[in-house]
Nucleic acid binder design. Sequence first.
DNA 1: ATTTAAAAACAGGCTGATTTGTTTTTATGA
DNA 2: TCATAAAAACAAATCAGCCTGTTTTTAAAT
Lengths: 207, 207
Amino acid sequence: MTVSTRRTQDQRSTETRRLLLAATVQMLMDVGYANTSTAGIAKRAGVSRGAQTHHYPSKMALIVAATEEMFANFAAGLEALAADMRSGALDYDTFFEAVWDEVLKGDWFYSSLEIIVAARGDTELREQLAPLILDLHERLEAIWSQTFVAVSPDAITPRVALNLALNVFRGMAVQAVLRRDEGYFREMLMALKVMLASHVKPATGTA
Amino acid sequence: MTVSTRRTQDQRSTETRRLLLAATVQMLMDVGYANTSTAGIAKRAGVSRGAQTHHYPSKMALIVAATEEMFANFAAGLEALAADMRSGALDYDTFFEAVWDEVLKGDWFYSSLEIIVAARGDTELREQLAPLILDLHERLEAIWSQTFVAVSPDAITPRVALNLALNVFRGMAVQAVLRRDEGYFREMLMALKVMLASHVKPATGTA
DNA sequence: ATTTAAAAACAGGCTGATTTGTTTTTATGA
DNA sequence: TCATAAAAACAAATCAGCCTGTTTTTAAAT
């Protein structure tokens, strides 16, 4: 179709930024932070080097913007799963498996792991990302508090218990880089559920 | 002292390799994998580029050798702590805190995290490291089995429980990169102990 | 409504610095 | 004397950021 619709400047900018951010996350997933270059991102996004630096003047600006969007997307996805469970559309087991599945097979966890580890060796990057992680944690803790209750007054609180669960998922996902053992995952998830069940339950009665 | 003792060739080689491996781990800790270069390692080790490539012809060879030694050191350190607890020289709480302390403040976990994450984006590196992680896991599981017993026949096995604990530590340490919150660590460790206590205890009666 | 000027978006190449691996030369140990 | 370890220089490739020029969109003037 040769008819070309004129786009506004804002539409052009938004589209270019979207392409760059998506290409950034995809490249982090595919080849890791150490092998992610600004030229490689521009190529994958199908935009020029000039357009790339016009919108994101430095590699760090690009990485931080991609991280911000990724964190927002993860929190939104987790909130959607939690809302489904609160409403009864999803049971506890399915919720639990879906979160682990998202960590292992989604494109959030590993790309954010790449960035977090890169930030460990880069003070400036770490400083720029620290507020983003605080914001994400606040959103996660709001989700836990809305979605789970303690099974008894002296049980571990949902906030602590679900953060512990998320740490187990993180630890398993790191280990999965070099050793992908579905049997090991299975038994770890089973053990985690057993341990959690002594302390928290969903706010609905679906457990 | 200007007197210099003549060293054997083997002593010279061993010393150069030791310097290179130590410098590799130190640089990974200090600046991360993405900022670790072979020239930087040689400089920190105080050896020339030629000596470096004589012993380790590629960056990957250097990284793999450093990983192998690091994994061996970690397993040995953990085994020493476990032996102390089995012998009664260390109680359970102290053992537990010492392991977490080693993960957070020692130079094993973060340098291995840097390497594991780098391996995620590098198929060849991943293939070379996979056997090393299998070996490490076997050593860890031998330590768990020798050091802990289940509190009852239907409790979670020590192998699974302690691997879960290690995953919690890994997850916490990843999160600590951007958010170092001692209060959060404290409550996570307390919660973990409570959960573990329902399933495992030390093979000695010191708990 | 049309034209023109200004601003923004974009394209592609360039530069200095850095990287890893290779080659040649030198020093040391056997 | 020979072999090995080490030093130093070199080559080619890659990197991020910057630059100049072009195209598209917007705003102002007529």
